[in-house]
Design a binder for these strands. Structure first.
Lengths: 146, 146
DNA sequence: GTTATTGCAAAGGCTTTGCACACTT
DNA sequence: AAGTGTGCAAAGCCTTTGCAATAAC
């Protein structure tokens, strides 16, 4: 499938070697969709690909992919979470601090912010792939009750 | 000074006890301005207040203050950094990935984003104290030249 | 053949926790 | 007096690193 071709091209272009481990991590992330913690990825790789992989290798592959800007990293409550960067369709996430649920956010809203920042300050914000934390509607109602 | 009164009121309102440690941590953060890692705070407290404090106490005080929304936490490259939340004047940062410079951003712009998100999705974004990465004007011009 | 990368295990750094004592209320 | 908060030290967790073996180039 096309995913693999994309990974191959990315690694080649960065002067890195094309190893099965890197392809497996990339594949897991591409098919997972959304942010995954390293531990989640580690489990996904073992289950869906049939063979386990040392955690340290997952970390190293992610480091490489991050250098290439193929994945993005966010902080998920003290641990790292990664997502595949879909260059053709930028998207953003609303991450709830209460229940951890992730939902997509209309890119137009952020684009408007980026435009406003640029107009006001000349600063170009990197908003390709953004995660905003907060509280989802149901958690907010739960908190109000308590 | 007024800072102390603010802290006293905050702790009282949360049903927490007013201890010297919590006041010292709050004071250090109020006077530091901007984001400080826990280690930086720990050192600031020791130096500027004359007496050291166990790291664990700093952590616990910060946890309490964070629950009260008196401080905000951000991820500073794997470790936590905290800043005092100035309710009277919320502020945000544009952090340049090129030169590392930090500059303030008009809060109104983010408030507009927060309102739009809430209207569209019901999700309440925590935008009290936000850091946006990107590229400042001079770095962008430098990159364009190269 | 060279050199980057992996696997394993051990170390590292930041943060949290258990428990007895002290202090706020 | 009652119960929360502190200090100390130890444990916990996520992540990184050293080194020999392996695989990509």
């Amino acid at each position: 499938m096309s995913c693999e071709g994309e990974t191959v091209a990315l690694l080649r272009s960065g002067g890195h070697r094309l190893t099965p481990q890197r392809q497996r991590v990339a594949s897991a992330l591409q098919h997972a969709g959304g942010h995954r913690t390293v531990e989640e990825l580690h489990a996904l790789i073992a289950h869906e690909q049939g063979a386990p992989m040392p955690l340290s290798t997952v970390y190293r592959a992610l480091t490489t992919l991050k250098e290439l800007r193929a994945v993005s990293e966010i902080d998920a409550g003290g641990r790292s979470a990664f997502a595949w960067v879909d260059r053709s369709r930028p998207h953003h996430h609303l991450v709830c601090r209460g229940c951890g649920t992730e939902r997509d956010l209309d890119p137009a809203l952020l684009q408007r912010l980026g435009d406003a920042i640029r107009a006001a300050t000349g600063f170009e914000a990197f908003l390709d792939h953004f995660a905003i934390t907060g509280q989802c509607e149901s958690c907010r109602q739960g908190a109000a009750r308590a």
